[in-house]
């Protein structure tokens, strides 16, 4: 089943606040082979003017993931999880994510295209802090393989 083109332009409710924990940031940093003192050492982060450790750039995907779950749960959209391949990914920052942030993400489907039996879905998640200020926008293109490919 192809992805329903009518979901283009659809927005979903903001996700539940995600509290960024210091040890989660450090665990994630180690997992992506970071040696960055800002991510690993709270004292170094404070010295650089941050309240706590600074998340590696791709940590935003952990928060974005909650929005993609909303898309997959939307039966009208018709996105079959077992046929999804990650096509591309982008993060655009106003500021880095810092431990202690309480982040919510709001998903909008900005594009649905058909290409050679596959569907390409562009999902934009705008991530804001507890004060409602923009932190980062995460954009994923998901390729949903057609039945024959």
């Amino acid at each position: 089943m192809a992805v329903n083109p009518a979901v283009e332009g659809r927005s979903y409710p903001p996700t539940e606040p995600y509290l960024v924990g210091r040890e989660k940031v450090r665990e994630f940093a180690r997992a992506v082979f970071s040696a960055d003192p800002l991510s690993l050492d709270p004292a170094a982060a404070r010295e650089a003017g941050f309240a706590d450790v600074v998340a590696p750039p791709t940590f935003a995907v952990v928060v974005q993931e909650h929005t993609l779950a909303q898309l997959l749960a939307d039966e009208e959209a018709g996105v079959d999880f077992t046929r999804v391949v990650h096509g591309d990914q982008r993060f655009s920052f106003t500021r880095p994510i810092v431990a202690g942030d309480e982040l919510t993400a709001t998903l909008t489907i900005t594009g649905v295209k058909s290409l050679g039996g596959n569907s390409m879905v562009t999902a934009e998640s705008v991530i804001r802090d507890g004060a409602g200020e923009h932190v980062v926008t995460a954009v994923s293109t998901l390729v949903v393989r057609g039945e024959d490919s």
């Binding site: 600074v54 391949v85 591309d88 982008r90 655009s92 920052f93 880095p96």
Partner: peptide
């Protein structure tokens, strides 16, 4: 990240898989 002086110095990052 290491060259630029830390994760906070990244403004935008994109890839295609």
């Amino acid at each position: 990240v290491d060259w630029a002086g830390g994760a906070s110095r990244v403004r935008d990052y994109q890839v295609r898989f």
